[in-house]
Nucleic acid binder design. Structure first.
Length: 461
RNA sequence: UCCGGUGUGGCGCAAUGGUAGCGCACUCGACUGUUAAUCGAGUUGUUACAGGUUCGAGUCCUGUCACCGGAGCCA
């Protein structure tokens, strides 16, 4: 007989079934039977199994039917006599695959702090919260592909090991096979010509530049893969290894770029509310009681778009006192972004046309040369979730901007070639996947929305 | 990396410088188609680590480590 997942069982017909999963709790009745709550991760809900103590194997396995143990249950799916559930399985045969001794099994049938669960990251997926987070994460990943595929974007795999330092910013993890205790040297420096790739290599911090290569041939592409930053960031919003989505589109200007970003976010939020309703109910009840209302509001209203200059005016005319100065030409600080999203507009905003000197070399210079066509999508309570721009397609302007920012044009020869041959206006953006999962679930710490978080001093599990 | 905070039974927390307690979990018993079950009893500690002050340190001081919150960097 084939095993039926609990998700299907709960919607299925009454009759004989085979269930497999992990015991969440057991409640004994002196009426001669016990209730087992079984979860197999297929959905948030458990299935209640009624185990009569008259079952032949029961006396032998009773002590093993504890929280955390894994079981296989054959039985009949029937209407429940109790109140908490409509259906339950009346067991005819129970097999214990793997017991979980109560004296040593770390998870208890009670609430645990997320800090504690991080220390047992190999067991935390067995909790309600992490099961829900990972189902939502999975659905969001699926919806991202669906959104772009429906629009005819090509899914592009950009390299993980790279020789280019994408934006000239951001510390990178070096990749090497050299003997670190005795590296070969030439002219007093490490001789990377003897390294595996024959030159110095690192883990990618972004697939954008490579994405542009393919957008300049296939029109619309998107990447969705891991990226790495060796920054010593210790916050609830940063990881050393995280997943990023980066669409890149030929013939899109900044307005098209912002339109796509807004449509994208709304699509993802709607999709997850529709397809992960039960998990989202849980988040709304236990993690953040305003999350569903917030998500609904976002999908039904338009994002406020304002220029960087307007944002500065808004901040300057407010009565709020800020720690950091509000002055044209300075970057917007977290406190400024929070004020705009949470106090002024109370919804997502898109700030665009930033000062040239605080943004990257590849962003298209506006007329006048003061600002570039960059945009950031800022969410209430979270901050920046998307950063994007129209790219500079003019060879001479791009070359000059690289020189102004002390970048070596020779290193970017292939990037410049894209402007030398068949250049086209194009745009793109990057979305931090974990930040999206964070926002959708209401989870406060980014370490709790990725299966295996990598942060400074932490790569266990 | 900077600022602030916290490290005490398995988990969550308490303890004017003076005998380390409580809740949950767990064990046993009672009761029950139960559902965070309930009621009664019981077990559980090198107070993060290393030094120091003191008659006496969980508590005060110094250092180290870990974790949390905020900031910077960003996604």
């Amino acid at each position: 007989m084939k095993r039926t997942k609990i998700k299907h069982l709960l919607k299925g017909e009454e009759g004989e079934v085979l269930v497999k999963g992990w015991v969440r709790t057991r409640r004994d009745s002196k009426g001669g039977f016990s209730f087992l709550e079984i979860n197999d991760g297929s959905c948030f809900a458990n299935i209640q199994v009624v185990a009569e103590h008259t079952l032949a194997e029961y006396p032998a396995i009773e002590s093993q039917l504890t929280t955390g143990s894994c079981v296989s249950v054959r039985g009949n799916l029937v209407a429940s006599q109790g109140k908490g559930q409509s259906k339950e399985v009346l067991a005819t045969e129970i097999q214990v695959y793997g017991p979980a001794p109560v004296e040593t099994y770390p998870l208890q049938k009670k609430k645990h702090s997320f800090e504690f669960l991080r220390e047992i990251a190999h067991l935390r997926p067995r909790t309600n919260t992490f099961g829900a987070v990972m189902r939502v994460r999975n659905r969001l990943a699926f919806a991202i592909h669906q959104f772009f595929q429906d629009k005819g974007f090509l899914y592009l795999n950009t390299p993980i090991v790279t020789t280019s330092d994408c934006e000239g910013a951001g510390e990178m993890f070096q990749v090497t096979t050299l003997d670190l205790s005795n590296p070969p040297s030439a002219n007093g420096k490490i001789d990377y010509s003897q390294d595996f790739f024959g030159e110095k290599t690192s883990l990618t911090v972004s697939g954008q530049l490579e994405g542009e290569i393919y957008a300049m041939a296939l029109s619309e592409i998107y990447t969705f893969g891991p990226t790495f930053r060796a920054e010593n960031s210790n916050t609830s919003r940063h990881l050393a290894e995280f997943w990023m989505v980066e669409p890149e589109m030929a013939f899109y200007d900044l307005d098209d770029d912002m339109d796509l970003a807004e449509e994208f976010i709304k699509y993802l939020l709607s999709d997850v509310m529709e397809h992960c309703a039960e998990d989202m109910e849980f988040f709304n009840k236990r993690i953040d009681t305003t999350i569903l209302e917030t998500l609904k509001n976002i999908t039904s209203s338009s994002f406020e778009r304002l220029t960087y200059t307007d944002a500065i005016h808004q901040l300057q005319k407010s009565s709020e006192t800020f720690t950091y100065p509000v002055e044209w030409g300075f970057a917007l600080q977290a406190e400024h972004e929070r004020y705009l999203t949470e106090k002024v507009f109370k919804k997502p905003i898109i700030v665009f046309n930033y000062p040239e000197q605080i943004k990257s070399f590849y962003m298209k210079l506006n007329e006048g040369g003061e600002t570039v066509r960059a945009m950031d999508v800022l969410l209430p309570n979270l901050g920046e979730i998307i950063g994007g721009s129209q790219r500079e397609e003019n060879y001479d302007v791009l070359l000059q901007r690289m020189r102004d920012k002390d970048l070596d044009p020779e290193q970017y020869w292939w990037y410049l070639d894209l402007r030398k041959f068949g250049s086209a206006p194009h745009s793109g953006f990057g979305l931090g996947f974990e930040r999206l999962v964070q926002f959708v679930t209401g989870m406060e710490n980014i370490r709790d929305v990725i299966p295996f978080p990598r942060t400074p001093k932490h790569a266990k599990f």
